[in-house]
Computed example of a mutant assay.
Amino acid sequence: MGLLKIDVLGSSFAIQAKEDDEYLKKLLNYYTQIITEIEKSDHLKDPKKTAILAGILLVDELYKEKERNAKLLHDSDNKYAPEDNRDDDEINSITSDLISQIEQVL
């Protein structure tokens, strides 16, 4: 169980979470980095607007990553689907060759 002291955008408090201290510090550092980038690029001085924009940017990043992972999973599930370029004869030939090679080793 980790403890993290947060001092961001004029607010200070501590949280306790299941993750370890080092992981929580990494999260806070990443969040702080995003806040710093927002403050530099948009010149926002309102902490609430900065926090909301940082949250939206993080959700965007998370959503895109989830979409990418779902596509990778879908693509790997369909790797050997019937619409694959290999036909049944080629697959049977490869399988036979592999079985022959295994039998030779045994």
Rank of each mutant, 00 (worst) to 15 (best):
A70I: 01
A51V: 01
D20G: 10
A81S: 14
N78P: 02
A70S: 11
D75Y: 07
S41N: 14
L98W: 12
Y31E: 03
L57E: 05
E61H: 01
R86S: 12
D84V: 08
Y23F: 14
S41W: 00
K66L: 15
T36S: 13
E67R: 12
L27K: 07
D89F: 04
I94G: 06
P82K: 04
I34E: 06
T95C: 11
K49G: 04
K49V: 10
I56H: 08
A54W: 04
D84A: 15
L98P: 04
I56V: 15
K40W: 01
D20C: 10
E83T: 03
E22P: 00
E83F: 02
K40F: 01
K71Q: 15
L72H: 02
E37N: 12
I56D: 06
D84F: 05
A70N: 15
D97Y: 05
Y31D: 02
T95G: 01
H74I: 05
E67A: 11
Y63F: 13
N69D: 08
I91T: 14
T50Q: 02
I38P: 04
D21S: 10
E37Q: 10
E65S: 15
A70H: 11
T32V: 11
P82Y: 04
I94Y: 00
I56Q: 04
L28Y: 03
R86D: 03
P82H: 05
E39I: 12
H43R: 13
E37C: 06
K26C: 07
H74N: 13
E61M: 03
I34N: 01
L62S: 07
H74F: 12
K79V: 09
S96K: 13
D84M: 07
Y23W: 12
I91L: 14
I91F: 07
A51T: 00
S76W: 05
I52S: 00
L44R: 03
P82C: 08
I56T: 11
E39D: 05
L98F: 14
T95A: 14
K45G: 11
D46C: 02
G55W: 09
L44Y: 05
P47K: 08
T36M: 11
L57N: 09
N29L: 13
E39W: 00
K64M: 05
L53I: 14
L98S: 04
K40E: 13
K79N: 12
E22R: 11
N85G: 14
I38L: 07
E90W: 01
L28V: 05
K71G: 02
H74T: 07
N69S: 12
T36H: 10
S93Y: 10
L62F: 01
T95V: 09
A54S: 07
D87M: 01
S93I: 03
A51K: 01
I91Y: 00
R86L: 14
Q33M: 10
K25V: 10
L24M: 11
K71T: 11
E22H: 08
I52L: 11
K48I: 15
N29R: 07
P82M: 05
E83A: 06
L62E: 10
H43F: 07
P82R: 03
E65F: 08
T32G: 00
R68S: 05
I35M: 06
I35T: 06
Y23L: 15
K66Q: 13
I56K: 14
D97A: 13
E67C: 06
K71I: 07
K71E: 14
N69C: 12
S96M: 09
D88N: 09
D87N: 15
I52D: 04
N92R: 15
V59N: 09
A70T: 07
E22C: 09
L57A: 09
L98I: 13
A54L: 03
